[in-house]
Write a protein that binds this DNA or RNA. Sequence first.
DNA 1: TTTAGCACTCTTGCACTTCAAGTGCTAACA
DNA 2: TGTTAGCACTTGAAGTGCAAGAGTGCTAAA
Lengths: 343, 343
Amino acid sequence: MELSERKKRILKSVIDAYIAFGEPVGSKYLTESCSFNLSPATVRNEMNELESLGYLEQPHTSAGRVPTTSGYRTYIELLMERYRLTVEEVSLLNELLDFKLGEMSKFMDEASRVISELTNYTAFSVIKKKGVTVKRYEFVRVDGKSFIMLLICDDGNIRSRHVQEIIPVTDEMLSAASVALNESMVNVAPERLALPAIIKFEEMLGEYADFGRRLLKIAYEMLGVTEDEQVHVSGVTKLLSYPEFYNVSKARCVLEVFERKRDLVSVLLDTKSNELNVYIGDEIMDALIPDSSFVFKPINVGGNTIGGIGVVGPKRMSYNKVIAHLEYFVKGLTEEFTEEDNN
Amino acid sequence: MELSERKKRILKSVIDAYIAFGEPVGSKYLTESCSFNLSPATVRNEMNELESLGYLEQPHTSAGRVPTTSGYRTYIELLMERYRLTVEEVSLLNELLDFKLGEMSKFMDEASRVISELTNYTAFSVIKKKGVTVKRYEFVRVDGKSFIMLLICDDGNIRSRHVQEIIPVTDEMLSAASVALNESMVNVAPERLALPAIIKFEEMLGEYADFGRRLLKIAYEMLGVTEDEQVHVSGVTKLLSYPEFYNVSKARCVLEVFERKRDLVSVLLDTKSNELNVYIGDEIMDALIPDSSFVFKPINVGGNTIGGIGVVGPKRMSYNKVIAHLEYFVKGLTEEFTEEDNN
DNA sequence: TTTAGCACTCTTGCACTTCAAGTGCTAACA
DNA sequence: TGTTAGCACTTGAAGTGCAAGAGTGCTAAA
């Protein structure tokens, strides 16, 4: 059913007010603060209908109205005004985008920090690291008994590990290992590694098979080990300043989600499209965080989702502001990536 | 003033009970639960004296007694029983110690997680990264325009960065840079780098001076950039399960400290000795976290403090347990380091 | 020196009242 | 027919008074 213009205006005003103050909105407030030129009674009638249509609800009889999930949904989809980034906000975001840190991980950490600061909600960033394969192995000797093993991976990252042996490591050993690894252990996901390849690898190594096996194990570890490094969370305390979280058991729910970072990763993995996603209330994650919403924007480079950045806030979060920030940031980032690729 | 044996026993019992239940301890409880063979009235008299000596206090007239900071202090120093690690605890800690991850940072992260799990408090680890110098520079080519720069540092860590240039990078350029860097930019803290060395460096490079300068800048960044990676916190939600933090504003204080990780670093830097330190209540950090205590154990290798691990809990934390865990872990770790050095 | 007894203090929980906010409904009005 | 004024109703929040319970300090007796 199509809402009348007046109903839309009232619904929008209710949600705006609720976002701003976090308290149920009554007819009196609406007639006084928004210039409707209507009496409270009329507004009440309209709100009553909006309630039966499922856009609003009352916490209890003698309270004002609060938006329902579907109220927020329509608000986001057709009522909300676009948020205009201020000059300061734009310049902070630009500064962030200019600030290219070598490592993706560092950069996304910084990004979540800045976004959290700007929006005043908790922000998180996710970097997808699934299915990396090694493009090349390199060795750099440190001393007689130790060396650095480098894994040059297809995700553009380099992993390094200082390997310390008990017995002296000869140059021969290193070059044999290097040849064998680069011949038979390249461009394959570690979990797919089949026995024939391993046998071939050990044959190539001959007397150094033990050494090689050890290296392979380390390489395997190095690929797996970064799994949990991919989530950065910032501004957790920000959430606690909203009255809806002024209650330890709720606050705990929130913190627990951020401690078990995997759950956040799953948010990313569930994301089908590359568009910005808004999950209102417990539309996601099985109500793990009550009364809160997620906004998540995937980052897409060359057709692949390489990660994303998101914001968690109370259900009544300032969606337009959050959306504006995320869109701007990701747009800037994607442009940068594409430019770089063209060089 | 020396405490009588009986006073000591009573003080110990009060603190033990308060640590266990978190509620003011009354004379009745003490006479019933601990076998004193004394009447409540006698115990009351003793507690009264302990109060005037400053070891106990009353939240209000009709409540039991609660330890003061100096009560805890004497408890820790002379009353507390040694905690004996259980078989499971020892085996978990040993497992952790065996589980050598390549990177120190990863390892300490894991360590704080395990310690938090075992003690049921929030744990944090700090890695000191100040004043690292580069022992050697290495380059590994990736493709015509990019390569990996490796910094082998005196703290045993290796830092790597994928460097992408716009123009092709020749082998000559790389080897010239390598020679120049390894000749003149080694074993010196980046902030101390003086002009003469830079001039010498650029002279050595000749026509590649620009390239070299760029590399130097990147190296400088790489050394600085890890600054904030050094603190790991685990089990923050654990704190919230203690009634003293069942109050959002206090919980916020705690979380804020963990977000501004620098403050935790300063705890380490303030630590003079290499012994385990206990900071009770607000004896530290200007009462940033009310009603809570810190236990911190520095990790010392070859005369240098390279970091540390600590636990934050309510003021009435189970000091003996926490201390036992930290001591065991750090002892094991230090032994491992020393062994490794002997190889 | 220890203890029993007692008066005192303070918190906690409960029932109760009052107050304000906001509603829905009805009837009057333009 | 849509709008509004008025009123009864509901409900949560806040405040009050009271009794119960826990723990103390003090005094006097053992």
